[in-house]
Computed example of a mutant assay.
Amino acid sequence: MIVKDQEMKIRELEKNLQEKNIRPTAMRLLVLEALLDQEIAISLTDLEKEVEKSDRVTLFRTLKTFQENGLVHSIDDGTGAPKYALCEDGCKCELERDLHVHFHCKECNETICLPKYKIPEISLPQKFISEEANLVVKGICGKCAS
């Protein structure tokens, strides 16, 4: 029964990657599985600890492939290392539609996606072209405030 459950899980992970036009290699499956297990955004260093038998370059390339294909988004939370989180279903990482607020807790150092809180549209001066936006609210999360 355990083997059958594992096979179903792998097929589901493969399907998730294929839907984003990402070839499902063993490493990509491991990284996706690790990201699915996270409730917070994760840095490359933290991902290294989660995925055994991996090297930093391969993990970085995997994350970049995921990002280029709209499976993950990166977050600059001001800590000096980008964090990565899975995109919501239906996300196309479009500035006007999909960007949301992130929260960085100063106590536990966790960064959390808040997809229900969208970044409002910002009207830029003529001939300015937006390529990315990032809104990070910093403070104390509910877990640490308790």
Rank of each mutant, 00 (worst) to 15 (best):
L36E: 15
L44D: 01
A26P: 04
D5G: 01
V72D: 00
E131G: 15
R56V: 01
A145Y: 12
I129C: 09
N16P: 02
L124R: 13
L63S: 03
Q126V: 13
A81M: 05
F66M: 02
E12R: 09
K15F: 15
Q6P: 00
D55H: 09
E19M: 04
C91T: 11
D77P: 07
R56M: 01
R97H: 01
L63C: 04
D37W: 12
K4T: 12
K64H: 08
L95W: 06
R23T: 15
P24H: 10
I2K: 14
K64V: 11
S123E: 10
K118I: 14
S54T: 13
I119N: 06
H100Y: 06
P115C: 12
K4G: 08
D55T: 06
P125V: 11
K20M: 07
R28M: 01
D37C: 13
D5V: 02
A34Y: 07
L35H: 01
G142N: 12
V72W: 00
M1H: 08
E14L: 04
A81V: 04
H102M: 05
N21D: 10
L35F: 05
E50F: 07
I40F: 04
D46T: 12
L30N: 12
V3T: 13
K9F: 12
I119K: 08
I112P: 00
T62L: 13
V51P: 01
K53C: 15
Y84F: 11
K9I: 13
C141F: 06
E50C: 09
T25C: 04
I119F: 03
L44W: 03
I22V: 03
T111M: 07
D55E: 08
R28S: 01
M8I: 13
A81L: 06
Q6W: 02
T111V: 10
V51G: 02
A81Q: 08
T79Q: 11
